[in-house]
C-alpha cells in the first residue's frame, strides 16, 4: 500500500492505495465519483477522461499513485454554483448526448480542447476528439455543441 494525497473537485483526499490501482477505479470505487465511466480496457474509448491539472487524461491510463499531489476535475466537479459549464450547457442545447455513457469523458475532453484553443473549426474539433468514442450520436451534434461552446468561450 502507498500513501497518496490528491485533490479531486477541490476536496483533498488521503488514501492508502495498492500500486496497481488505476486512477479510474480510485475515483469510482474509493471516492464514489461514479460519473467517470469505463468503456474499454485499452485506452481506446475515452469514456474515463478527467482533467488532471486542467488537461484531459484518460484515467484508465494512469495509476492512482501517479496522482499523488495532483489536482483532478471529474464531471461531478465541472458545474459551479449549480450552473452547468458552457460545454455541458451546449451539449444540452444541441442534443449532443443520447445514452450519456460517453458524455462525461466527451465533455471533459471538449473542455480541454477549447481551453487549449484547438477547437477552431469543425475538422479541428473532429480531430481533437478522436480519442473519445460515442456509439449513439454519430458525433454530429457533439461537434455542433463543441463549436457553439468554443464560440461562446473565446
Amino acid at each position: 500500500m502507498r500513501h497518496v494525497a490528491l485533490t479531486v473537485n477541490g476536496s483533498r483526499h488521503e488514501l492508502e492505495l495498492e500500486p496497481r490501482e488505476l486512477l479510474v477505479y480510485v475515483l469510482r470505487e474509493r471516492l464514489g465519483l461514479t460519473g467517470t465511466t469505463i468503456g474499454c480496457d485499452t485506452s481506446s474509448c475515452g469514456a474515463c477522461t478527467v482533467l488532471v491539472g486542467g488537461e484531459s487524461v484518460k484515467s484508465c491510463t494512469m495509476l492512482g499513485v501517479q496522482a499523488d499531489g495532483l489536482e483532478i476535475t471529474t464531471i461531478e466537479g465541472l458545474a459551479s454554483n449549480g450552473q452547468l459549464h458552457a460545454v455541458q450547457q451546449a451539449f444540452h442545447e444541441h442534443h449532443a448526448l443520447q445514452c450519456g455513457y460517453c458524455t462525461p469523458g466527451m465533455v471533459l475532453a471538449a473542455v480541454s480542447l477549447i481551453e487549449e484553443g484547438k477547437a477552431t473549426s469543425e475538422s479541428a474539433i473532429r480531430e481533437g476528439l478522436e480519442g473519445n468514442l460515442c456509439r449513439c450520436t454519430g458525433y454530429h451534434n457533439i461537434v455542433r455543441a463543441v463549436s457553439a461552446a468554443a464560440a461562446g468561450v473565446s
Binding site: 460519473g35 465541472l78 455541458q88
Partner: peptide, 21 residues
C-alpha cells in the same frame, strides 16, 4: 417541437445510475 431532454440533467452532471455504480 424539439423539447430539450429531461434525461440530460443527471447524465451531464455525472449523476446517472449505471449498474456498475
Amino acid at each position: 417541437t424539439s423539447v430539450k431532454r429531461k434525461e440530460d440533467a443527471s447524465l451531464l452532471r455525472g449523476r446517472a445510475t449505471w449498474v456498475d455504480n
